[in-house]
Write a protein that binds this DNA or RNA. Structure first.
Lengths: 244, 244
DNA sequence: CCTTTTGGTTCCATTATGTGAAACTTAGTC
DNA sequence: GACTAAGTTTCACATAATGGAACCAAAAGG
């Protein structure tokens, strides 16, 4: 599996299937059940076309439709498919026992992430204090340029893929420590490549720090990254680094 | 949300989108990364057509393709979408704190399920002993006719939906206690409707028992079911019932 | 080294499918 | 009862999907 996650162009769809999936994304992005007219306002497709897509997706169980209220939501079939995706993923099931162990050893929160659409997608998580975080946590996405796992993966991307990925970063300065320019980030990535692991120095959230390592295939491709997260109050980066 | 999950016909697809999703299902069913030729053997589509679908789905991130080995697998985009689906579902996020509490109170395993394609789809789970089961558990499917949650939901389905659902049960006799005929099941469902909750008397797995209650909307529609599971060694149905 | 086979990719004429403006049908409002 | 907003259906048209066949590359076999 290539972890770079090439551009599956939102908006520029290939064929009818692509368009239908854009509609699916639209519902997902909204983050809550949504009416027909609300989706129509996005101007993605003309009325009749959008209507037909919603029908099809609902038939297929990718969307659910509440006929009482007229709201569309993402369908349960997705949960079923995601379970299969997770189970047959090359990374997550194999990494699971290691994550468990790491969480126990460090007593800190551990994340497993992969690249998807130039963003970081968290595929597993172990939290030392709170025991369980099911779908509510796995499946989340975050920025790549200012998280430990993101930088660890970016650092090991081939040039072309890196260029594409950087193009798609927002470089929003979440905190004073955020590396908010491509150049600053590139310098950092070189350092990461040299030393083998990445730090998050409160770049995404104040008070939150982490150490991340990339996971590479035998051929040197990035397939994911693993991180141990903590707070500045509890520990320091040096202490975290020692455990990794 | 209607919990009956009408037939989103596997095989008889509506339009190009339906066909593409059939291919997705095919990969999911296989349960492991799979080669082009292997998929072709299913005779679902002619060579060129299947090829084009795989291309499209891969472009869209619904599948991933390992160019080194030539294997297709389910893509990470599904995990992302499922997270959104879970989060915007009307049931799972709301039920979560109750499930937590129930698991603590009873000290037993708690399942939250919905109907999907006449099967039971587990959307959340809390396990008293083992702390965490992420995607590895949620998203799983099981039979409706011989599980507590399944029967609880079937019992409250409208006639037409029930008939359709029964049609699609396999009625395989997993244990001597399994209700393996539609008639036996119908009788049981009437009893469940009368008393408000369902039992699994070792019908699916020997030694495993459970009590399940349906979750109904204000209008009386089933939207899911909740169950507390245990073993015959640890407790009895009567004891379980008392807690529910 | 030259076949043959296997597994995967591309072409392209045919036609099925998707398209979307417009017309229509409901509720809701004033 | 006329008016508006939201959702559904129709249908002539054009685009996009189809799949048989040809093609290519890399193993397997002689």
């Amino acid at each position: 599996m290539t972890a770079d996650g090439g551009p599956h162009g939102v908006g520029g769809g290939d064929g009818t299937v692509g368009k239908a999936l854009d509609v699916l994304d639209l519902v997902a992005q909204t983050g809550r059940p949504v009416r027909f007219s609300e989706l129509l306002e996005h101007q993605l497709f003309p009325k009749a076309t959008l209507y037909r897509f919603l029908q099809t997706l609902t038939n297929q169980g990718m969307l659910s439709y509440d006929s009482e209220t007229g709201y569309y939501a993402l369908g349960v079939r997705l949960v079923r498919l995601a379970h299969a995706a997770w189970a047959q993923s090359s990374l997550a099931p194999i990494a699971r026992p290691f994550i468990d162990q790491l969480a126990i050893d460090t007593g800190e929160t551990v994340h497993l992430a992969q690249m998807d659409q130039a963003q970081v997608l968290y595929v597993d998580k172990r939290n030392a204090t709170r025991p369980v975080e099911m779908f509510s946590q796995a499946g989340k996405v975050g920025p790549a340029y200012c998280t430990g796992v993101g930088k660890a993966m970016l650092a090991h991307l081939p040039d072309a893929a890196l260029a594409r990925a950087l193009q798609r970063q927002s470089f929003h300065a979440f905190t004073p420590h955020t590396l908010a320019t491509p150049d600053a980030l590139r310098t950092e990535l070189a350092a990461i490549r040299a030393c083998g692991h990445a730090f998050d120095r409160e770049e995404h959230e104040a008070g939150i720090i982490c150490v991340a390592v990339p996971i590479l295939s035998r051929t040197g491709q990035v397939i994911g990254a693993l991180s141990v997260t903590s707070t500045t109050q509890r520990t320091t980066l040096d202490a975290l680094e020692a455990q990794a």
